[in-house]
Design a protein around this nucleic acid. Structure first.
Lengths: 120, 120
DNA sequence: CCTATATATGAATATATGTTCATATAGTAT
DNA sequence: ATACTATATGAACATATATTCATATATAGG
């Protein structure tokens, strides 16, 4: 006798379960993916990326313009560097940061659109 | 005499600074945006979203299929609910969750593409 | 060499986050 | 009622994270 209220019997070990499982990336990739999104999950970093999308900038100016302490800025730039999101070039004692590519900013824009649709 | 090694003098208080500042969303929206990305910044939640993108599922099956404890699953579903990412319907004692819209999954796919490009 | 400027970094701290454990709630069946 | 199943939730705990503070490094100018 099949108990329809036990959802467990519905599809586990069946075709649908496999379809679901095969659509989910492997653990290793999944972690990378979550790590990537977590980078965008901080308003300071989003600010930095948005700023660099307009123009390359030195640490000092970023710090002043975005109202973030020099130290915090440096720490966050390191995070973005290690995540391969920004690159830098040195000119004397000044270090100019810029986006490694514009893909990131496109993803942020997608998020912005998403939120705006949701709000309206 | 203009000191070119002082990047501070380059554009602060000038047109470029304004362009940068005006491209950055206001604080309130910025927090929402970061909050949104932070939701995607956890592998368990990404797994759940990917699964629900294939099919609505009850908590029990999600839990079994994704190898997450029932309690952790419930907690994470609450997070997704509060973030307006999933909706649910009750059928007896069983609660079926599904994505509120497919937008989210599109954003995740964008992230996946981004990572894959970067790896290659 | 000494000073000032620009940036980086380690340690400390406060806060946020994810999971587990125990328990509560709610529906179903006997 | 009682027992069982499905889900939710509060508390505790361990870990991660962002910022600050103090200090280090590096470059330039005098």
């Amino acid at each position: 006798m099949k108990n329809n209220n036990n959802c467990n019997g519905n599809f586990l070990h069946e075709e649908k379960a496999n379809r679901v499982l095969s659509s989910i990336p492997g653990d290793e990739f999944l972690y990378q993916l979550a790590d990537f999104f977590r980078i965008l999950g901080d308003s300071t970093r989003v600010k930095i990326i948005k700023a660099l999308a307009i123009s390359e900038m030195c640490v000092y100016d970023l710090s002043k313009l975005l109202n973030v302490s020099q130290s915090a800025m440096s720490h966050q730039l390191r995070v973005l560097r290690q995540a391969n999101i920004v690159k830098y070039r040195k000119e004397g004692k000044v270090v100019f940061y810029s986006l490694k590519d514009e893909h990131i900013e496109r993803i942020i824009r997608t998020g912005i659109e998403h939120l705006k649709e949701r709000t309206s």
